[in-house]
Design a protein around this nucleic acid. Structure first.
Lengths: 203, 203
DNA sequence: GTCTATATATGGATAGAC
DNA sequence: GTCTATCCATATATAGAC
């Protein structure tokens, strides 16, 4: 293997993407500099331009990298047997734990909803989320046939994500407790609300 | 009134804040430059530093300006008479229409959840949202006594806001229709879900 | 592939005239 | 109060050595 071989020693590109994910997630596109990313990787800023033509390309690649990781795992939970209610319960649980554990992913998604242009959002929707979304919508349709599965799927995901996203401010609002950050508590609340409405906690 | 009088001619400060709101909302703190804000106002960048000590102070003042406008109106809707269900219906309707009409406000709020530090979030929670939040939580407690009013209040607001925030990407997801952007459709869906759960659309 | 060095633009912020 | 002019730090991006 000569020193000029192609793949061996460095998959610097992947390393760059891994380091860029938390930076873009926490500080946003304009909040992160190429120097900052390079420093996190442990290389010089100029080297980034060998792997990516410019900052925007690096940003898009970073998002694709972060999002592609997440496209797996959930499908299995929804295709398992059980009554629609049981499967809803299982899905909300899994989804809440998954999302709860990856703050960077959630922040990237939120930033993309704020800053992404039409093309980026369409790519995200069709190439990344479509399959999972269909699974959720199908589940919604089994739990509540005849209802608008699209809106229900948004509500299902949104309920979980909003409780997670408001974590930093909820503790300052009346009635906020640390238990409200517990994925188990959130999943239980959301499941109960989805299945029975607001009165659902009185069993 | 001498030319050195204090308040008269210019409330440039207010004008600056009005112009800064949509800029910070759409591009974020690091995405907007002082020059850009000055240009939108029609003044020179240096003039901004007469009214505000630095960019961060201008940003904080901008958010206070945007948020304080919204602290009114909702209280009335919740104190009106009616059964808890009727009042919930009215509140969700009003809240959905209010939030639907002010995209800048929603984006500012989202960005604050992403970028705000503890102190800013505490200020936002206690000085701006507390009163409204208590109203929502009280309503939740009347609709569903014995349940966790804090979590229900988050769910109520979150359901509405998430449908609005995902507007740009929903149209690319399966089953997405333009009607899903209609505040009336969103409000009806959310109310039904809150009162009856997912099965609520089969009446 | 990665480096050093640098071109070039733009950012926040200040000084001082009017 | 607002302007012009400018300082200085930092940004993206490129050139060319190794």
């Amino acid at each position: 293997m000569s020193p000029t071989a192609n793949q061996p020693n460095s998959d610097t590109k992947t390393l760059v993407l891994d380091c860029a994910v938390p930076l873009f997630a926490q500080k946003g596109y304009t909040g992160v500099s190429m120097r900052e990313i390079a420093k996190a990787v442990g290389i010089q800023a100029a080297t980034l331009y060998y792997h990516f033509p410019n900052k925007e390309a690096l940003h898009i690649a970073t998002m694709a990298h972060a999002f592609s990781d997440k496209a797996e795992g959930m499908s299995a939970a929804m295709s398992e047997p059980g009554t629609p209610e049981e499967r809803l319960r299982r899905f909300i649980n899994l989804f809440t734990f998954l999302m709860s554990g990856d703050k960077d992913f959630r922040m990237l998604l939120q930033r993309e909803l704020l800053d992404g242009d039409e093309e980026q959002l369409e790519t995200l929707a069709t190439k990344v989320f479509q399959e999972q979304f269909i699974g959720i919508a199908n589940l919604a349709n089994e739990v509540a046939p005849g209802c608008d599965a699209h809106m229900l799927a948004i509500s299902m995901a949104g309920l979980v994500l909003y409780h997670l996203e408001t974590g930093p401010i909820r503790r300052f609002l009346p009635g906020g407790k640390s238990e409200h950050d517990d994925p188990e508590v959130i999943a239980h609340h959301v499941t109960s609300l989805l299945l029975n409405g607001m009165g659902g906690c009185r069993r």
